[in-house]
């Protein structure tokens, strides 16, 4: 079936490694899929920027890029703009984060030291204005989206695919309270095991009760009532997460996340039934 090649020859040698995660189907912590590799030259062990995250969480890896290793001017673990240079024109980065060169508009390789908050020009804190994300997200996509660099080099298309995917993920993560909470804790080096068995009997019985209520709810009205109840709970626990996080009480913070996860699931179930 080489048919697909007819319209994809340009990208045929691209590879991408998206962070594989979904709030309710968390990636198995046991092993990661390698990014699909379709290169026709042997992978070169080269400029792999090391992830700043202590977890096994797999973000983008550039190590398999098929381009010959050269001494590029950009520094991988660069702290801010000071030393970063465009790989294409060599211009020094003006603004941070440096995802696109201001001089020649070339898309830059992913720099893992730039976190999601940084991408959106936000302070690293939990309570953010979600409404402002979409505009910034679109601004980035207009500079980074692979559709817009169709006629550029294979190398830049690769960068665009990765950067754009990362911005999608950043947007998705930051705009959802639960995902944002998990992410910000992870930045602090705290991993939330979403598969963890439940031990808190109080929460357990509460969950069972809610589930029963959802199952027995006869009409959309009853379902909507439970839904708004869940929303209240979500807001409540989102606030307590914010407080706990601010005070760096991470155990409490994880606890709030666990609560939020449950209420989100119930809400999802209700939406399915409605």
């Amino acid at each position: 079936m080489s048919r697909r090649k007819f319209w994809t020859p340009l990208y045929a040698t691209l590879r991408r490694n998206l962070p594989s995660k979904h709030p309710y189907f968390p990636a198995s912590s046991v092993f990661k899929f390698p990014s699909p590799t379709y290169s026709f030259s042997p992978p070169s062990p080269s400029s792999s920027p090391s992830s700043p995250f202590p977890s096994s969480y797999d973000f983008y890896s550039l190590q398999n890029l098929k381009f010959p290793v050269r001494s590029f001017c950009f520094s991988t673990g660069s702290e801010e703009q000071s030393s970063a240079r465009c790989w294409s024109c060599g211009a020094v980065a003006i603004a941070a984060p440096f995802l696109v060169c201001e001089t020649c508009r070339s898309v830059q390789p992913v720099d893992h030291s730039v976190d999601y908050f940084h991408i959106f020009g936000l302070e690293k804190k939990y309570d953010i204005e979600v409404q402002n994300l979409e505009g910034k997200y679109k601004d980035w996509q207009k500079k980074l989206h692979p559709d817009l660099v169709h006629s550029k080099s294979e190398r830049e298309r690769g960068y665009a695919a990765e950067q754009s995917a990362r911005v999608i993920d950043a947007y998705h993560t930051l705009s959802k309270p639960l995902l944002r909470a998990i992410y910000i804790l992870r930045l602090e080096g705290v991993d939330v095991d979403e598969e963890e068995t439940l031990t808190d009997p109080e929460l357990l019985s509460e969950i069972l009760e809610i589930r029963e209520a959802v199952e027995e709810a006869a009409d959309p009205l009853a379902l909507n009532e439970i839904k708004s109840q869940m929303n209240e709970e979500l807001n409540h626990w989102s606030n307590s997460f914010a407080t706990a996080f601010r005070c760096r009480k991470f155990e409490e913070a994880v606890n709030s996340i666990r609560r939020m996860t449950y209420y989100e699931r119930v809400t999802e179930e209700i939406v399915k039934k409605l």
Partner: peptide
Amino acid sequence: DINVCMDIDASDVLRVLAGVVVPGSQQ
């Protein structure tokens, strides 16, 4: 533990990856 992964890339190509892990093993 059988993991099935689906990947749609920037040019809309769908790839399905499947792998097996035995608990306790990293590989």
